[in-house]
Amino acid sequence: MITRQFGSEVRWMLRRPRTLIGLFGLVLVPIIISFGIWTAGEDGGGGGPGLGAIIQGNGMVVPIFTLFLSLNLLLPLVASIWAADGLAGEAQHGTLRGLLVAPVSRVRLLFVKLFGLTAMSLFAVTLMAVVGIIAGTAFLGMNGMMTLSGTTLSTGEGLLRIAFFIVLVTFQMVSIGAVALAVSSTTEHPLVVQAATMTTIIVFQVLGQFPSLDWLHPFLITTGFPGLVDVMRDPMPLNQIWDSTLLAGCYLLIGTGLAAMRLITKDS
């Protein structure tokens, strides 16, 4: 029963033209990055901070690099679009009413929406990573995966790291999406949801820049993003990754809880 609802939710999401256009846009990111680094050539690579310095001739870093960059704006945007469509969009079309009066628990409705969000996030992130591996290998070549620590992992280990990173990034995305779902349950205008979510993410990132606000930083979900780069260190330190994931988990709980409270008390 519930699996049928999950399936139909994902089918619905995939049938929306903007979902497909969005996925297509996401897939372009790793291709453009690989192409850009390839054209920059040997002189352009090798230098600078972070992952950009080790990407030259190291195609397997492209998926990690792409997802790491996209996590700051692009992926939260996509998550907010799906969350906005899920409840506010349905309310706008008048279809939410039907779902609310149906003899199905509203909590179940929320979980179906959350599942759709998770499935689509995982799909989008995996798609980006796979295209990233292909584009990175094609443009930049591949010889195992060189880490930030200067060691070279075998292709198998590299793929494991990428898979782990996909899970981590998806979790961050779903947590942001859960908060967006909470906003989505309060309005009939999908744009409000997207605007609110993106504004929050951007404001969080701006606040994160001020050292004088360091007491606030541990509360911001965006604080956890940079730590995820530890996936590319060898041996992989888990403290920061674990902290970021716990932080996102708190947001997931708050978002889901608020959305449930709103849906339960909502008049049909």
Binding site: V107, G249, C250, G255
Partner: peptide, 23 residues
């Protein structure tokens, strides 16, 4: 409905408490 509402509230509170604990 009251029970689910309580559970949802507890979820929100746990999340908020978790945030402060992490901080």
């Amino acid at each position: 409905r009251k029970v689910t509402l309580a559970v949802a509230t507890a979820g929100v509170l746990t999340g908020a408490a978790g945030l402060s604990l992490l901080a």
